[in-house]
């Protein structure tokens, strides 16, 4: 799946600059980054309706005239003799679990920002956006195993952002085993978003994700790629070093460029096709693209999935 077309035109005003990942990189506060991205995104987008009706208890407050008598907590009245009503913090109907790839290949960046930074901003924005919609948010950082796990909760936004902020790309890129373990532990259906550069076999990737999807999760994959690793823009003879394995390879990039591009395109296509078979959405996130483009693609994918779900469900 390619990035959403037709939204490439930059928007005027400060909001457009604020969505530039290179500019966002200069902001140290990840929450502020995510808030800015989402608010800026929403300013250019009609507010979408809340999805779901679930309520989470937040606190008790004294009863006042006009309150619905049905919200009086009679247990508290029995213990204290006073009337209190229950306050519910927000309305939620799903868990939003973010899977962040922290393998070493994510450390690459050829155009001012590394893939990992871009992935962090994207992850934070998605979490913030989900939380703004009332979803419960959690995060899993993983490489060849699960590194950090924050379960979904309406109160875990800060923990999730801290986890994202502290994550470092220093693991292996074989995500399959970690995803399989995660699929086994996933107890409650929700939204699962994987942010990764996907340097692994498409079939190995699609297996665990298919399991997650069969468990009732809506699975999305954000395929983060740098333009340099798609285009191979080098001219001079050089030695390349694999960030994950440390392997080196002397070569003449200029002579291999076209064949390399073809291989990369074939890989992206193969990943997308493999994920599609498991009803997993594949979103290509180019690190040179503004984050709102990716967010818009995310929303589009969500709406498409709902339409597919209605059509697929028996009437």
């Amino acid at each position: 799946m390619t990035p959403v077309k037709g939204r490439a035109a930059p928007r005027a005003g400060t909001g457009a600059n604020f969505l530039d990942p290179v500019v966002l990189q200069r902001i140290g506060n990840l929450e502020l980054v995510a808030r800015g991205v989402v608010e800026g995104f929403l300013q250019g987008l009609h507010r979408s309706p809340f999805l779901g009706q679930s309520l989470d208890f937040a606190e008790h407050r004294p009863y006042t005239v006009g309150d619905d008598p049905r919200r009086v907590d009679w247990r508290v009245y029995a213990r204290t003799g006073r009337y209190y009503v229950k306050e519910f913090e927000a309305e939620t109907n799903t868990d939003f679990t973010l899977l962040l790839d922290v393998s070493r290949s994510m450390a690459f960046g050829g155009s001012g920002i590394t893939k990992f930074d871009y992935a962090r901003f994207l992850a934070a924005s998605l979490v913030f956006f989900a939380r703004r919609q009332g979803d419960r948010v959690g995060i899993v950082t993983l490489d060849d195993r699960v590194r950090d796990f924050v379960p979904c909760s309406a109160r875990h936004l800060e923990r999730v952002l801290i986890t994202i902020d502290r994550a470092r790309p220093d693991g292996s890129g074989h995500l399959a085993s970690a995803l399989e373990a995660l699929a086994e532990r996933q107890a409650r259906a929700g939204i699962v978003a994987l942010v990764s550069d996907l340097y692994l076999d498409p079939e190995e990737l699609s297996g665990p994700l298919k399991v997650l999807g069969q468990a009732g999760n809506d699975v999305l994959v954000f395929h983060v790629l740098d333009p340099a690793e798609r285009e191979l823009p080098y001219d001079d003879a050089l030695t390349m070093e694999d960030l994950e394995t440390g392997e080196t390879l002397p070569l003449q990039p200029g002579d291999l460029r076209s064949e390399y591009r073809e291989l990369v395109r074939a890989h992206i296509t193969a990943v997308a096709q493999a994920l599609a078979k498991g009803r997993v959405d594949h979103l290509l996130a180019d690190t040179s693209s503004p984050l709102d483009e990716v967010l818009f693609g995310y929303l589009s994918a969500r709406q498409n999935r709902k339409r597919r779900g209605r059509w697929a469900s028996p009437s």
Partner: peptide, 14 residues
């Protein structure tokens, strides 16, 4: 080739 290798995410395609 240059003295310092150029880091690249993966050489699986190359």
């Amino acid at each position: 080739h240059r003295g310092t290798p150029v880091a690249f995410p993966s050489l699986m395609f190359l």
